[in-house]
Nucleic acid binder design. Structure first.
Lengths: 349, 349
DNA sequence: GTGAAAGCGCTAACAA
DNA sequence: TTGTTAGCGCTTTCAC
């Protein structure tokens, strides 16, 4: 009853050998009904729970996958995690989550711990895209899939959101509303999302013959604070932008906060578009227009790819998926009058 | 290089016995510098990572704790988790997280999995407070601490927020502002927070000689949807309340959404106080007054208690901590004129 | 149907 | 300082 019973104890109590107990535990059949019941009863009475460590030592798999995210406080990740977990549970897998706080060092530790524990696979949004520290995982032959941020030096299945498209469309929308002075609050340029969202921005400007203006580019770090600072800096410009595109949820929050504090009239003096939907989006007036990512689907797909790798160890070539984000047009981005080129000259595509 | 090397391989390559390798791996000293270096090199070259399963089979501890939360999408939990992780890392522990989706069945599965993996302890916010399913953990002698929701039938260290005090003070604040028709959107009464926040509400009314009015009590389920419905129901009353107290963050969001949709003038026609701070609190106009919980501290304390249990297996009696919440007065709760009892009669304490 | 026995990779006691 | 060896609890042949 107390302490831990092992397979031996169960065997003894049921008057069988441990082999038979093992068969029952693993539903392998080939055990007389009567015997099975006796064993089940013994297990019940002893409160026996099998020791995963011992089990793992023989049959390789653990039916457990490790998930690593950079910042558990960013609501994006719990949503992705929910998608992963759901699919995992369906397939009889178990997901354990750990957060790195954007620290490559911590990430490496977690990774090592996961390997030690013998996870069957790992899903990761890395804090260090060059991927050196991931070598250990691949070398152990453990399948891995990258989510939201790709990995440079290794071929790993990847599930991304089409960041370029998302930001392109957002910026395009602002341009079509007549905006020409469109600022961007960038994410870190050493991350895929940061880079790509900036690319979409540039591409849109280019396609519509708007020139890139250094003053309108603010380098943020995906944190709320930097969004706040960004808006302030933009406001301090002599020639202020008429629209701002923010590259992620947290910066959007900071940015909107600043706009409020500055008494900069949102939707009138300053239009706004954010990447990622946020709770506050529909609470402020005007409501925020945003690019929304299919987070749950992202997680589901990630697990599915991982699961395939786990099942069929054959080295299929690397796969990369790009899920399309969705534009949610609300109210924060308004028509700009007067257009500076009413003849549409600068707007030809 | 490829596949997994084991301690044997390392020993062979370094021309020593596995015992010596083990000594090096575990920093036990007593190995000649030269030998150690040879071994380290071999480990390096082979990309050896020790097998936790095998290790666990001998020396009991895994330096891993399991954390179980009911809803990873509720921002409260990631914050608590951050506190746990920080302290855990300091002490050389590793935290793995799993979410139950408020399902006792899933919770039981996770628990079992954690036990199988030999976690050194578990921190849990249970989906089923009667605690039957926790028996297995306690029987295995695995330390456990409950966070935010206590456990009925077993003596487990518990870290709570003083919910009664928090809601009492919030409601008291509204009363002192002159409100008498104060509604509450309750959480589930089979959870500690749900029950206690309701108790604080009742206590405040009682202390100030305000009678409990059934019409002003709405039973929610801590979900956004129910907050929304609650506000609607309250609004539909002939004799509407002049103030609402919402029992948690998600219901606050739903509630505020409804108030907006109903064009019920927040801070004027209807005052508001919520339990738990939310992102949107400072974005809406007027800003939301809330009861704020020390989430990070909650997590830190939980780990600390658990750690003590892990280290000193002696059965110290159950400990229960109640951390005080903090009232954040912003703008959503306004003075009510005219008070119905200007002589202060009904306001004597 | 059931049991005996050989490891899985590691730690730790005991020898040398 | 280093090596030998006995398990830890389990799965899995191979006999019976």
């Amino acid at each position: 009853m107390e302490g831990k019973a092992n397979i031996q104890d169960v065997a003894k109590r049921a008057n069988v050998s441990i082999a038979t107990v093992s068969r029952v535990i693993n539903n392998q059949g080939g055990v007389r009904k009567q015997t099975e019941e006796r064993i089940l009863k013994a297990i019940q009475e002893l409160g026996y729970i099998r020791n995963a460590a011992a089990r793992t030592m023989k049959s390789k798999d653990t039916k457990t996958i490790g998930v690593i995210v950079p910042d558990i406080n960013n609501p994006f990740f719990p949503s992705v995690m929910a998608g992963i977990e759901q699919k995992a549970r369906e397939k009889g897998y178990f997901a354990i989550l750990s957060s790195t706080n954007e620290s490559p060092v911590v990430e490496q530790e977690i990774l090592k711990n996961f390997i030690e524990r013998g996870v069957d696979g790992v899903i990761i949004t890395t804090a260090n895209e060059n991927g050196d520290h991931l070598k250990q995982v691949l070398e152990q032959g453990i399948p891995m899939v990258a989510v939201d941020r790709s990995i440079q030096y290794y071929d790993v299945d990847t599930v991304l959101v089409d960041n370029v498209k998302g930001s392109y469309q957002a910026v395009q929308h602002m341009i079509l509303q007549g905006h020409e002075k469109i600022a961007i609050i960038c994410g870190p340029q050493n991350t895929t999302p940061g880079r790509e969202r900036f690319i979409g921005y540039k591409k849109a400007l280019e396609d519509y013959n708007l020139k890139l203006d250094e003053r309108y580019i603010f380098q943020g770090d995906f944190g709320e604070r930097s969004g706040y600072q960004g808006a302030h800096q933009l406001y301090s410009l002599e020639d202020r932008p008429t629209a701002i595109f923010s590259s992620n949820n947290l910066m959007t929050i900071g940015c909107v906060k600043a706009i409020g504090d500055l008494d900069w009239k949102l939707g009138e003096e300053i239009s706004f578009f954010g990447f990622d939907d946020v709770d506050i989006a529909t609470f402020i007036n005007p409501k925020l227009s945003v690019v929304s990512r299919p987070m749950h689907a992202l997680g589901e797909l990630a697990f599915q790819l991982l699961h395939e790798r786990i099942q069929f160890k054959d080295p299929v070539p690397k796969r990369e998926y790009k899920l399309s984000p969705e534009l949610i047009i609300r109210e924060s981005c308004r028509l700009r009058y007067p257009k500076s080129s009413p003849d549409g000259q600068s707007l030809k595509k």
